[in-house]
Structure formats: C-alpha cells, structure tokens
Design a protein around this nucleic acid. Structure first.
Lengths: 227, 227
DNA sequence: TCGTCAAGTGACTGAAGGTCATTTGTTCGC
DNA sequence: GCGAACAAATGACCTTCAGTCACTTGACGA
C-alpha cells in the first residue's frame, strides 16, 4: 500500500508533535498523503477523512494543520509550484548563452511533463482553491508567485534577445493560461476519456499536453520574434 | 427582483408540464434562473434549492429536469457556448474577403467580451462539470463541440490564407486553452481580488481578459504567419 | 513523580446534493 | 361534463462530507 512509507514516517515521530520541526514534519506528511490520493483520483474524490486515515491521524488533527480542504491543497500547490520554478531556474541558469524560442518552448514543456499534479492543481486554483481560503492565507502565495514570475521572467528576457522589457513575466502569464487550459483538455475525467475512446471520430478533441504546449509556446515566441 | 419575470414566465405555464413544449419551457426557465444566480455569485454558491426557489418549483422538480447539478451547468454551458459559436460564424461569414491576424484576434476577443458566464463555465468544464455526469450526457456535448470546432476552424482557414489545413481547429483548441486560463486569472475570487487590491505591487498579477486575449491571439497568429 | 498544557481525538453538527412515496393537475375516453 | 389513469410535482427524508469542540492523553519541566 502506498501509505506504508508515510505511515512509518509518521510513527517515527512522537505521538504529539510539540517541537516546531516535528510539527513541520507532520504537516509535510499530511501533504504527501493528500498528494498521493490526488494523483490517484480527483480533487472531489479526495476526502479529508481519507487523508487523515492514510496519515494515521484523526480527522480533527488534519484540521489543526490546515483550516480547510482548500487551504490544504493551496499549500500543496505552493510546494509543487515553487519547486518547479526552482528547477526551471536551474535549467535557465546552467546555459547562459543566447537561446532560441523553440528551445525555450521545449525546455519549459518538458519540465512540466511529469508534473501532472501541479498542472491539475493550477487549473483548480482560481475556480476552486481560492473559494474557501482567507486573504491572509492567500497573500503569501501571491507574493511568492509574483517574485518567482519576475525572477524567471527576467532570466527568460536575458536568454531571448528579441524579448522586450516586461515580456518575460508576460510570457509566464500566457504560459500559465496555456498550461491551465491544455491540462484541462488533456487530462480529462474518466467519463470524458470513455466518450473520446468510444468514438474515434472525436480524436481531434484529444490533446497531447506536452506536444501541444510545445507548439503553442513555439508559435507564441515566433510571433514575438518576428516583429 | 431578478426572478420576477422568470417567475411570471413559470406561472404562465400550466402547473404540470405535460406537453413537450411546456417541458422545454420549464427546462429553459430553470436554466435561466441558474444562470442568473451563477452570474451573481460562483458555482459553489449556487444551491439547487435556490434555483428551484427562484423558478417557483420544489427542489425535487429541478432534479426531474437535470439529474445532477453538474448536468444542469453542463446544459447551461452548452446553450451559451453554441450560441457564441453561431454568433462567431455570422461575424466570420459577413465579410468573405481575406482577413488579418490582428483583426481575427480582435473579433474573437471582443465577441467574448460580455460572455463572462460562458468563459467561467468553460474553465469549470473538465475540472468540475465532467466529474459527476454520465457518458451519455457528455457525448452529445462533445459531438456538437467537434462539429462547431471543425466548422469555425474551416471558416478561419478560409479567411487567413497563411493557415495550413487543420490549423483552424487547432487555433480554437489554443483559444479554448487561453480563454480558460485567462478567465481564471482575470476573474478572480473576491478574496483574491481583495489581496490584489490591498497590495499595489501585486498589480502585475492582474489581468485584463479582453486585452490579454487579444495580444496573445495576435502573437500566436503572427507566429503562424511568419513561417 | 507528577502537574500542566497543548496536541490529538472522534462523536457530533450543519449544509447541500440527491431520492422517493405520496399528492394532485391534466387529459382522454365515455 | 365526469371520472379513471397517468405522469408531473412535491417536500420530508437520506447520505455524505467538511468542519467543530468538549474531552483525553502524551510530553516535558520542575
């Protein structure tokens, strides 16, 4: 069972997390269990009671660490998103020569290849997660997002000489839009997948996330270059 | 009160809708009330009991017309989406000369200007609506979507000579992705709006839907033209 | 060793989607 | 017109699930 290692991790902790580091460990454990359940199903199918069960905690305990289900998933998104930004930073930093549009497009699209959970959560951000969260919980997320956007945007502007000032961050705005939209089309619900598979003529409605993102980004960047 | 006219419309119907046309009228009435509530709030805040109340019906009656809340909103999306496709068809048909990329971008973006409900629902399609709907309910929607996509795509290919075969429909796939993503960023939840307004330095995270969609589409089309 | 305190618990609550036995308006044959 | 028959409408009831809170108990310091 997938929870075994996590359960072990939990049992390695004292039954009561009194030190800050133990609290942080328990918090991460809850996030890990939520992620495992989310990867196997969908947001609606993840029950807070199941998250608690897998973490070998009572339901009420989970609510000590996260005030709402939405706050829990916002925290999860935060972890995944900024880990991705950090990895992208590395990819952009390791080769400081001038890049081409297609190369950037491929790099970005491929960096998101195994990040289904991240991109699915991104699609939930404004429609679901921001619905039941306080401004206090949201502010730090938005602050970090802006900082990451500006940082990565600046790096991109340095790599692609044809980009004007401010177009780096905007590139990420459009990327966010495309990722959100394409993930929704590519990662269809089981019912939708069933429909598409049963009717071969609907094949054009099926979308390969990485391929489509790569071409869309390439085209977008070519449009910026030819000005 | 907004429900007055709809309530009148309902009372003009017989108490029991036995003829198909009466059933259809009652169905539309329910959709109208759901739309009114959705425009004023959010998906999660629209309660089936409120929809029923505004339509002057018992809750159980609404479930005679739509098996689930998701099915109701899928039907609403269907109405709005294909009405939009029809209007776009007209816009594309009324001038058969060659168009430019920027003109198409503007036309499309402006045609979506007042369609907040449509674009918001589009963002919910795969993450929420397809979650609690049967394949039988989804199939006709997908069929119509494909047909509309091919039709509009073909028209677009005729207007823009630089488009290759098959790129018309793909343009609409990317449009769908951009609309979904940008709407989410532009039409933020009240909490998110509060955060962004309280912190002026977060201004870059605010997105003007129509403006951003226009530039993104223009850039995308310019990328296709300069090949 | 024991008192204190906060972490942890799980029965309980409220809210909302969805069901169904019953009621009642409508229609149609006479 | 009348009433039997049918199906549309009803709303009390059921279920599920996020979220709460009075109570329990493990950890740690004195």
């Amino acid at each position: 069972m997938a929870s075994t290692s996590a359960a072990k991790a939990n049992r390695a902790l004292p039954q009561r997390a009194r030190k800050d580091e133990d609290k942080e460990a328990r918090r991460q454990l809850i996030l890990n269990e939520a992620l495992a359940l989310y990867q196997a199903t969908s947001y609606a199918e993840v029950k807070m009671a199941d998250v608690a069960g897998r973490a070998m905690l009572a339901k009420g305990t989970v609510f000590l660490y996260f005030p709402t289900k939405e706050a829990l998933f916002l925290a999860l998104l935060e972890d995944l998103l900024f880990a991705w930004f950090a990895r992208l930073d590395e990819l952009l930093a390791e080769d400081t020569s001038a890049w081409t549009g297609p190369r950037l497009a491929r790099t970005v699209a491929e960096s998101l290849e195994g990040e289904e959970a991240l991109t699915r959560l991104l699609a939930l951000l404004q429609t679901v997660l921001e619905q039941n969260v306080t401004a206090e919980q949201l502010r730090p997320f938005k602050e970090r997002l802006l900082a990451a956007l500006v940082r990565a945007g600046t790096l991109v502007e340095q790599r692609l000489s044809f980009l004007h000032a401010g177009e780096g961050p905007r590139f990420f705005i459009h990327l966010h839009a495309l990722v959100t939209g394409l993930r929704q089309m590519a990662d269809v619900a089981p019912v939708a997948r069933e429909v598409l598979e049963a009717l071969p003529h609907l094949a054009p409605l099926r979308v390969d996330f990485t391929a489509e993102l790569t071409t869309a980004l390439s085209t977008l960047l070519r449009g910026l270059e030819s000005r």
